[in-house]
Every structure is written in C-alpha cells, then in structure tokens.
Amino acid sequence: MTVAVASGKGGTGKTTIAVSLALSREEPATLLDCDVEEPNAHLFLHPSIEETRPVELLVPEVDAALCTGCGACSRACRFHAIVTLGTEPLVFPELCHACGGCALACPTRAIREVPFRIGVVERGRAGALAFAQGRLDVGRAMAVPVIRALRSTRQEGAGFTVIDAPPGTSCPVVASVRGTDVVLLVTEPTPFGLNDLVLAVGMVRSLGIPFGVLINRSDIGDAAVRDYCAGEGIPVLLELVEDRRIAEAYSRGVPALGAVPELAPRFRLLAESLAGLASGRSVAVSA
C-alpha cells in the first residue's frame, strides 16, 4: 500500500507524520520524500545514501547551419522556452518542459534534443527503512520530472510505502499523490489550515483517491476544521495535541516517535484506518 501524506498548508507536520507512519511499522517500509524543492525527512531519518542518479530533461539545441529562423519552434512552445526574435531561436532550458514539440515543428530538422540536468534522486536506507528522496538543483523550476523519477523507483509499491508530498495543491503535489492508494491530509485547526484543507480536498477528490484527515496540534485554534469534515463526511483519522517534547526532538533532528514512543501504537492504528480507506472498507476512527 502506498500512502501519500499531503496538506494544503505548509508547516502542518507532514514530514513529522510521514516519518512517524513509516517508523511505526513492524514490517519493512519505504519512505519517499517527494518534497524535492526542500526535502527534509532525511534530517530525522539520517539515511545512508547508497546511490545518487541525475535527473535530466531533453531540451532543444539549435543547429545554426540548418535553422532558417522561421520561428515554427517558438510558436509550438507555450512556455516561451524557445523564442525567435532575431535570426535564430534562443533556448531557455530552465523553462523547458521537455515535450519535444519544437523539434517536431521544425521544418528543417535543425533541433536536436540534449540532456539538461535538473536534479538528483538519492536512494539508501535508514535502519530497517528503505529511503529515497528527490533533490531539485538550485535555480531549477521543474519539480515534477524529479518527482516522477523518484516515484518510478522499484521501491514504491513493495510493502508499506509512505510518500512525503510537498505542500500546496499544484503540479508537484499532484505528481506526488497521483496513483497512490490513499491520501492522508494533515491540517491544523485554524482558519489558514481550513482554507488550505478545502483546496487540498478538492484536489484529492478530482484525482479520485480515498482520503482522510489528521488534525495536528488539535488543542489550538477553533472547531471549524472538525465542523467542515463532519459536514463533508470526511473521516478524521487521528488528532494529535501539541507536545513540546516533539518540537524539542524536531529541533535536534530526532523523530517524534523517538521522543514520544507511546505514539507508535496510534500510528499503527492510523495505518490500519488508511488501509481500510484504501480498500473501501469503513474505518475505525481514533480521535
């Protein structure tokens, strides 16, 4: 089973929850950190990285000897990654989505596609846990291809896999969540948490993936998130109160379960609830 841990709002505790879910397992598990713009699960898992692979896109390169400057390539590109303003096209590889459309459009076959590195996928282990993360290079904007490369790993789908998704509801989040068996939306009971939860629920519903909510720091804020979930028939699978021990452990790079081991059974129950949602069964909700 593959569980994506996502949220609309950033800073709700996605990584803390994803790491706890993975570490609470008694059988082998895998964690994939898909927040490739700033992967941070490694700060708590301290994995040994055994393999690093570059992620490359194929971007256009123009052969000036063959180019007539007709601009067909630029008209084919909706991302302005290849523009023809003078006599021959200019390529902006950091804007290229690597669709290959410009090369197809070129009537003189003046464009060939060349590799352009945008990041890496790193794999390794953290104790019994298989670990992999994507890392987008500084100055690059294309997170989605790095996430796809990370998720094409053989590790996903083998046993219990937890995906730590980026925050928000945009393309990198969709790339992290699509095709998983169940999504856990982590939120906090505040107006900001609710606003972004509603957006995230819309995204997950349109992807057609079963999902439940975890309310983190459940003893702050107001009742609006609970009211919203009740009104929408969304299961609240777990509520965790604010706990200074978890925050102190976090600041030292220690997982929440390292500081509060008695939470482990609650995370195992959470995993059972998620498995129930994934299989379409009704779930036992532990509030």
Binding site: F79, H80, A81, V83, L85, F92, L95, A141
Partner: peptide, 14 residues
C-alpha cells in the same frame, strides 16, 4: 505567468 514573463514581454515589445 509563473515564469518566463520577461521573455514573453520581450516578444511583445519586439
């Protein structure tokens, strides 16, 4: 536009 606004603007003024 998320990115490429400057390039697009150059296309416009050109």
């Amino acid at each position: 536009t998320a990115s490429g606004a400057g390039i697009q603007a150059a296309e416009t003024v050109s």
